[in-house]
Amino acid sequence: MSGDSDAGAGAGAGLSVGGFALRVVLVAAGLAALGYGVDGLLTMPRATRPSNATAWLIGGIVVHDALLVPGTMLVGFALSRLVRAPYRAVVQGALIVSGAVALMSLPLWRGYGGSVDNPSVNPLPYGRNLAIVLGAVWAGAALLMISRAVRVRRTGRRGDSADG
């Protein structure tokens, strides 16, 4: 636990006795659930394929920490050079929305999955649909940027209205 403070110094330093007890209960319950899950995963190896499941569990962290976040940071860095102040926030926001939407529907617009003999699985033109959704997102972003441009011109001040 962030918890040197919590577990150790405990009640004396700003944490009430009740708060301390709550934490002890939460930690115990959490560890019990965690252990139950690990035990279940390992006792049904024919269904869970522990080595394959572990590869996916660790693989997820690695892909996220080593690729996704550094990639995002590179994009952020590029934006800070390429897009000026009142508009950058809008572009960042629209990219967050676009990235999340594209990621959660990735198998669909990439054409992964589905079922050869069952046309009711993944039946839509997902590439086109993604374009429609992202088009709407960026249209909204464009409107926001226009309104910011107008505001900047009116007030004559720059970079002051970055709230968005």
């Binding site: 959490g30 019990a32 690990v38 995963l41 499941a53």
Partner: peptide, 28 residues
Amino acid sequence: HFFFTVTHYWVAWITIGALVVHIAAKLT
């Protein structure tokens, strides 16, 4: 290669357990 339902079920317990511990750690 694992069976989705069973694995997703057990990993749910792992995830939620770790989440509860995390909540305890971050309360303050």
